[in-house]
Structure formats: structure tokens, C-alpha cells
């Protein structure tokens, strides 16, 4: 749940929530929120999305209806997506961080990491990457270049984590 309020009311709201929650709640910051959205493989603007990454490349097809007659940006989405967002799971030791290069088995550059971190819920080092099409299929092994060294990672299904309902 997200709450929005006038900026000058934010402190009062924060204190009221904290008092109501007592010992059962803890404040958390952007880092915790980033981990949550990352484990659910949700794209974040500035990382998996930007003014140079289309929603189709980011895998947000469900929100785009190209059959509609007209909408802002339609022309930009009519050519085939050049890249795909893929999930990676590190097989060797290392954390793939944003901006690190991704290579295929032949050592060719195929894309870069958009978000990557240790996922506390699954206990794995995971990453999302933007890869040139045709992107490797789930189960294929690629390398992430960490401090000039290739570190093996498997392409895995997203979302990384789904809460059991």
C-alpha cells in the first residue's frame, strides 16, 4: 500500500503510523524498497526503464496495446524490440551490479546489468539485464564481467520471487 499526503502533513502521518504500529513495525528506506521490487522483478525507472528503453524491451507488453489506432509513442513501438530484459542468477561468487557488462559463452558483449543484488528471500545473487535480441533462453549460461573478470550466471525465469497467496 502507498499513502500520499501533503508534504507538511508527512511528519505527523509518519509519527501516527509509528505510534499505532508500536513494536510490530519498523521504518525502512529506499534500499529495502529496492530489494522488494527487485525480488519481484519489477522494472524501476532509471534502471530497467528509461527514455532509451522501450516498454516492450522492458517486458511490459501487458501495458501496451499496439492495436489501438493512436497513442503517444506508437511509432516508436512499431519496430521489433532490439533488446530484452532477462533475469540472471549468479553461479559463481560475485554480485552483478548495475552497469556491469554481460557476455555470451563466446565472450561477445551482449548487454548490461540494469539492477543486481543479493536477494535475501531466495538467498541468491540475482540480476536483471538488458540483452540484445535474440537474447539467450532460460537455462543458458552467460558471464557477467565483475572487476574485469567473467563470472558465470544462468538465465532464469522472472519474477525471482512470488509470494504464496
Amino acid at each position: 500500500m502507498e499513502l500520499y499526503c501533503a508534504a507538511n502533513q508527512a511528519e505527523a502521518l509518519y509519527i501516527a503510523l509509528k505510534d499505532a504500529g508500536g513494536e510490530d513495525i519498523l521504518p525502512c528506506g529506499l534500499g529495502a524498497r529496492d530489494t522488494l521490487r527487485f525480488e519481484c522483478s519489477m522494472p524501476l525507472y532509471g534502471h530497467e526503464l528509461s527514455d532509451s528503453i522501450t516498454p516492450l524491451e522492458a517486458g511490459l507488453n501487458v501495458f501496451v496495446k499496439p492495436q489501438k489506432d493512436e497513442f503517444i509513442g506508437k511509432a516508436a513501438l512499431e519496430s521489433e524490440a532490439k533488446r530484452s530484459r532477462v533475469g540472471l542468477k549468479m553461479l559463481e561468487r560475485g554480485i552483478a551490479r548495475e552497469g556491469y557488462r554481460v557476455q555470451n559463452a563466446a565472450g561477445e558483449d551482449i548487454g548490461y546489468v540494469t539492477s543486481g543484488m543479493f536477494a535475501p528471500t531466495t538467498g541468491e545473487n540475482l540480476a536483471m539485464a538488458l540483452i540484445t535480441n535474440p537474447a539467450p533462453a532460460i537455462g543458458e549460461t552467460v558471464s557477467v564481467i565483475i572487476r574485469d573478470k567473467p563470472v558465470k550466471a544462468d538465465v532464469v525465469k522472472m519474477p525471482f520471487y512470488k509470494r504464496n497467496k
Binding site: 561468487r93 560475485g94 554480485i95 543484488m117 543479493f118 545473487n125 572487476r147
Partner: peptide, 8 residues
Amino acid sequence: LGDIVFVE
């Protein structure tokens, strides 16, 4: 640093 998750 906060929670340390990796050491090389």
C-alpha cells in the same frame, strides 16, 4: 555500509 552480503 549496512548489511554486508559479499566479501572478495
